[in-house]
Design a protein around this nucleic acid. Structure first.
Lengths: 123, 123
DNA sequence: CTAAATGCAAACTATTTGCAACGAT
DNA sequence: ATCGTTGCAAATAGTTTGCATTTAG
């Protein structure tokens, strides 16, 4: 692992923030002011292809990166905030219903987070 | 509903193909050669905001559009192909585990489709 | 020395926006 | 007349690529 790869991996896996490339870039820049965005993209892709980090795509937002340990996600439909949550594992049940092996599954629950519910705009 | 809105809605809901904007555009152009891409984007967004169609984001591919009737998705990790599948409904179980209401959930199962498994490149 | 990683700019893909012209009330 | 829709071009966001330079083994 190169310096940046290691650092980026560290940033992603120690944050609970489900960071975007821009956010990783900003964090990395504090320590290495000369780094450029493309380097972050390159490294994030490398880590992802190596299976060391997880990529999360949500409609209408930039991709975010996360630890690979198995867990599900709660997505606020209003502000886009992402939180980890671990529901009962579905692997066995899904495999049985499918009648076939699969690689992994991705479960997202969309809701309105407490912050958004509080900050008015009822609905 | 305008002419295009209606037509686009029709294309999306009668296809099983989980079409991208480009594909919708191509289909629409056969009937209305003068339509432009931006119009497809605008209408697709309008339909989506109105809750009439569903948007599907998968890592590393353009968004696709689908019917709104509740169902899950099978995604081929290799070629990106998307298929519908309906697993046992998880709503009650998730709500119970969450202890809170949510809007909806999104379940994707990643696998290698038969076509990809056949066409060599073992693994 | 060599191969891989980085900085940088340019390219590219997907998508959105501004605006003038058009079309349907 | 008015207001939303369309065509069109330009802008933007997110991401990838090519290449010369730097860095690490």
């Amino acid at each position: 692992m190169t310096k940046y790869e290691e650092e980026i991996y560290h940033i992603i896996t120690t944050s609970t923030g489900h960071l975007t490339v821009e956010q990783i870039y900003a964090a990395l820049k504090k320590k290495y002011p000369k780094v450029v965005l493309a380097t972050v993209y390159n490294n994030v892709n490398k880590l992802w292809k190596a299976g060391l980090i997880r990529k999360i795509s949500v409609e209408n937002m930039p991709d975010r990166y996360d630890r690979v340990i198995k867990h599900d996600h709660l997505v606020c439909q209003r502000c886009g905030k992402l939180e980890d949550i671990s529901f009962h594992d579905l692997t066995a049940s899904l495999r049985e219903q499918m009648g076939e092996e699969f690689l992994f599954y991705d479960l997202k629950i969309f809701y309105i987070c407490q912050d958004c519910r509080n900050s008015g705009l009822a609905g």
